[in-house]
Amino acid sequence: MRTTAMTAAATPGPAYNFAYLDEGTKRMIRRAILKGIAVPGYQVPFASREMPMPYGWGTGGVQVTAAILGPADVLKVIDQGADDTTNAVSIRAFFRKTAGIATTTRTVEATIVQTRHRIPETPLAAGQIIVYQVPIPEPLRFLEPRETETRTMHALEEYGLMHVKLYEDIARHGHIATTYAYPVKVEGRYVMDPSPLPKFDNPKMHRSPALQLFGAGREKRIYALPPYTDVRSLDFEDHPFTVQSFTEPCAVCGARNVYLDEVVTDDRGGRMFVCSDTDHCGTRRAEATP
C-alpha cells in the first residue's frame, strides 16, 4: 500500500519548510548524525528542537527522519511493530503533511523506517535506513543518574557496573532478567542502549546492512550504527545471551521464530498469540491465499 498525500497542498495554514524543520536545524542534526556514524555507539549531544509533538513520543526519531528525508524517500513508521498503532499513524501523517512524501506499510518498499520498540521481521537491506525513537539513551542511567559521571564512565570504558547488574540478576533469578532495552557493546568499545526493543530484536542489529540511527529528543542525543557494525549483547560466558522464543506460532499466519503479541480474548484466561509485525503477518497471509 503506497499513498501519496495530496492533502498537504490542499490544507491552508502557515507554510512550514519541507519536513517541518528549517534547513539550518537539519544541517545541525546531520552533523550530529555524521559524528555518530564516525564513532559508532557514542551518544552525540545535539540541540534538540521543540517539536509539535510531546517529548517522549518520538521527537528524537522525528528530528532524525526530518533531517535525512528527501522528496523521493518512501517512509514507513511503526510502533510496537505495527503500522496502525495511533502514534505511528500520527507520525506518518505528520510527514505526509509537512513533506508530502510517499509512505508505505511494506518494509521492503521503504527507504526509511522509523520505529518505536521493534525491528521489522523482514531483514533490512543495504541502502535502507532505520530510525529508532529513544526515550533514555544512556544505558548506565539507572546505575548512575548523573550525566557528568556517565560520560566519564564511557570515556574511560568503565563498564564493570553494567555486569554487576547482570550478575545480580543471575544470583537472584537464575537468569539475566533484562528483557528489553538490553544493553549491547558496539565494535568492542561503547556500551549502547538499543532503545526499548525486546531483546528478541537485538541480534538483528548485529552486522545489519542497513544504516541504523537513534534519536532521543528529550535527552538531546543522537547515536548511530553504520552498516555492518559489530553489535554484541552483554552476557557471561556461562550465561550466554539468548532471545525469547514462543512455543506456538502466530495464530493468524502461522509464522514461527517471530515476535508475537499476546491478545487477551476473554476474562477467563483465553488468549492467543499473533505477529507483532503487521506487515510481515499481512504479507504471509496474502501469499498463502492465491
Partner: peptide
C-alpha cells in the same frame, strides 16, 4: 561498598571491571 548490591557482587565488581566474564568463576 555498594550498599544496595549483594555481597557477592560487591566482591565480584572489580573482577568484572577488569574483564572477567564468567559468572561461575566470579561467584
Amino acid at each position: 561498598l555498594r550498599m544496595r548490591v549483594s555481597a557477592g557482587a560487591n566482591v565480584g565488581e572489580r573482577l568484572m571491571a577488569v574483564g572477567d566474564r564468567n559468572y561461575g568463576r566470579i561467584r
